[in-house]
Design a protein around this nucleic acid. Structure first.
Lengths: 355, 355
DNA sequence: CAGACTCCCGGAAACGTTTACAGGAAACAG
DNA sequence: CTGTTTCCTGTAAACGTTTCCGGGAGTCTG
């Protein structure tokens, strides 16, 4: 009956001690009842009643400190406005929820400092694990990754020897699929609107584009290549710059947001899509289907990558000693209206650039 | 020198005890040095060295248990694929980050159980506060809200007497703005594609639409009203159903996703926008500008609502005793190409359904 | 040189849980 | 009636941190 603690001050929230005292049992018994393990009829009744009376709600932090797990998993992406991450997130969420955990999302805004800070904070045990999809990877990044106290799975390219679970795709090959299709449809003045070259995907897609053209022996006109951000406005602006100096008959875009921007720029300038210019996006997001005409797009299997990453993560949480694994999802091309062959259109090439 | 603990087993992660032992100081000194408060030259050097050697990384959970705060704030929304939440999130993020905290997002999928479970879990101290934007509000919801151990701010309509911080808009008036504009442009067969009527926004917008038509003495043709989900595919399907039985000259849509679906359905059916049918969306998301033609949309100030909600939350975290507050953001109409007056177009109605 | 003051340090108590362990009562078998 | 088993309970330790408090050493002041 040693009343060591009496945290009954009016304003502080009730703890298991409060409940135990009120029910006239020990905190051990109270805890057992509240967790539904053990306890006699009588004890259960008393504890339940006491808990209800004081409005007890357990402190998850304290529980986590004891149990060494939080039941939370985080996904960190660069730009939550990019629909590719939406489908990725949905796939991850499904897997994570099935394991009884909850998924949290964090947008890093692509700032490196932000991302490593996130790793340092969240990963310091606020979450049981995390999935990271960085677009730039620095040595700091890698250091933070291997330092991380909780399991981390990376979606995207990573140094070949990085000892980190990793799900990737082959975006070089993805770009090649688009180019192959365009060449086969008779397009020859194929342009490319890319994201920043100092990002991992930007660099890979640039390389892929050049290699694919070379493979078809189509000469590359540098005026047909333009770079911006991986976003709508930047894609539109980049396309406008490109159109001001060159006349493509097809545009490959490094993601769907850019492709939508390109589409908009083309239509605003009076070009017909796909009759005058074919457009192919990348990521095959919902956005591609929402456009008119619907956008062809290279699927990089974002949902699949998310699903696999989540599975890798759960496995590693279950057994942290697993060796680092690497999985690859292959790209595929989804052809829609925006890249149908130009020859099928019976319309004469009347309209010229108005503005 | 009582060596009470020696958690030096090879696999477990180093704690402050490990560092202290290695540095030959007490855990108190180690903690002080690691937090940058106090410590002599010598101690600082030794502790820093020891920490680096063992790769010490603090356990945030333990720290939170002690400090009673986590530095995390959560935002829970229904559908993370809806761009309205993206702008909301960005605004919240800015405020929250400025206070040195980190924002986490959770998508509830609109399931009530999910949402209350979330409140019960996350709010049980994993986060310092949370912003919730529910589209359905039940008594369970309200109960969970007032029970919540951490501050919660709700974005959206809530019962008038709910003792919960709340930022709302007047979506009835928002719909009225759209209708006013359409009527003023000479449209008379104004249709409405809404979301589910059992949601708070769905009900409000329905009421607003009916009231606005009545105010202009425009008779309401029930065949011009259709209901689906607040999503693209549903909006498109709903519009197709509507078009199969009626011939509107304008469509008001309950959000931008629906409006994009409507636009797509209209164009696919060979209607010109805005010449034949004007379209107005709602939320004024990025999507509205990404369409061609660009969509008129009723801004409900999502960024502003997010910003204000974040501020309310931070204030309440600082002082939980504050009385419940309620703020309102007024809607405004952003007119773009999709609802320009039909008469201004000089182009003859040549183009027909391209398929 | 004594006393006051400053600075740094270590012990120990928190934060709120869960759980290993041991003790005690009741039920049961011999 | 005794010994074993079963069930329930309470004590206390643990999770890893921060921080209050008292003590000791050094420095300054009078």
């Amino acid at each position: 009956m040693g009343r060591k603690r009496l945290p009954e001050s009016a304003d502080s929230r009730p703890t298991v001690h409060t409940v135990a005292a009120r029910a006239g049992v020990s905190i051990a018994s109270a805890s057992r009842v509240l967790n539904g393990v053990g306890g006699s009829e009588e004890t259960i009744r008393k504890v339940r009643a006491a808990a209800a009376e004081v409005g007890y709600v357990p402190n998850a932090i304290a529980r986590s400190l004891q149990s060494q797990r939080t039941g939370l998993v985080a996904l960190a992406v660069e730009d939550i406005g990019n629909p590719v991450y939406v489908s990725m997130m949905r796939a991850i969420e499904a897997v994570v929820a099935a394991s009884g955990r909850q998924l949290l999302v964090h947008a890093t805004g692509g700032q490196i400092a932000n991302e490593t800070a996130l790793l340092r904070r969240l990963a310091n045990r606020y979450v049981d694990g995390m999935i990271l999809s960085p677009i730039r990877v620095t040595d700091d990044h890698l250091a933070a990754l291997v330092q991380s106290p909780v399991p981390v799975v990376v979606i995207g390219q990573l140094g070949a020897d990085a000892p980190v679970d990793n799900v990737r795709t082959d975006s070089r090959r993805g770009v090649a699929l688009a180019v192959d299709h365009l060449v086969a449809s008779g397009r020859r003045r194929i342009g490319f609107v890319n994201g920043p070259l100092d990002t991992v995907p930007g660099a890979a897609r640039d390389a892929g584009f050049r290699a694919a053209l070379a493979a078809h022996a189509v000469p590359l006109d540098e005026r047909l290549v333009e770079v911006g951000d991986f976003q709508y406005a930047a894609g539109r602006a980049a396309t406008e710059r490109l159109l001001a100096r060159a006349r493509p008959d097809a545009l490959v875009c490094a993601n769907d947001l850019i492709a939508v921007g390109a589409l908009h720029a083309l239509l605003a300038a009076g070009h017909r899509v796909p009759e005058d210019v074919a457009v192919i996006g990348m990521d095959d997001t919902e956005l591609a289907q929402m456009m008119f005409p619907q956008l062809s797009s290279v699927s990089l299997g974002s949902a699949e990558r998310g699903r696999r990453a989540a599975e890798l993560l759960l496995q590693r949480i279950a057994d942290p000693a697993l060796p680092p694994r690497r999985e690859q999802v292959s790209p595929s091309l989804v052809v829609r209206a925006s890249s149908r062959a130009a020859v099928t259109t019976p319309r004469p090439p009347t309209e010229e650039v108005p503005s």
